[in-house]
Amino acid sequence: MLTEIERRELEDAVKHYPEKRGAAIDALLTVQRHRGWISDESLLDIARFLEITAEDLDSIATFYNLVFRKPVGRHVAFVCDSISCWIKGCEQVQEQIKNLYDIDLGQTTSDGRLTVLPIACLGHCERAPAMMIDQDVYGQVTPEKMEIIMEKYK
């Protein structure tokens, strides 16, 4: 069941489109913001609201890398691995995350604090290497800076 708040937000989103399903991404991201990820149950709730089948909605949900169909940690670190960041050492950034938290790309720490994922070019190439934690972007990330940055995300 969608909560009252979720339902209200979804009703606002569908107003922007001539067909309800136009709001599919808005709806998935809205529910994800409240619940952390999109479970099968969430998928059904949203599909019912949009008046499409769950299978149809899943073909959209599974297409996008920012829609999580598996649980993630309290925080998600996205490490840019595109060319400008690769030249400037994104592999060391990934390495440092592994050293600090003992997780590889795609994994979550055992205490549920952090998930780390690769991401396509974040568009901060002039400040490479870049990473995004939740919604905050950091540029010129070094292994030393990373420890300080991560203090904010407990």
Binding site: G22, A24, I25, L50, I60, L66
Partner: peptide
């Protein structure tokens, strides 16, 4: 209206973008 997407490079291709906006696989 502002439509915030959810990733995937192919959405920049204009017809994939239209499918994405219509709430279809992009």
């Amino acid at each position: 209206h502002l439509h915030s997407s959810a990733g995937r490079y192919i959405c920049g291709e204009e017809t994939a973008l239209l499918n994405a906006l219509e709430g279809k696989r992009a």
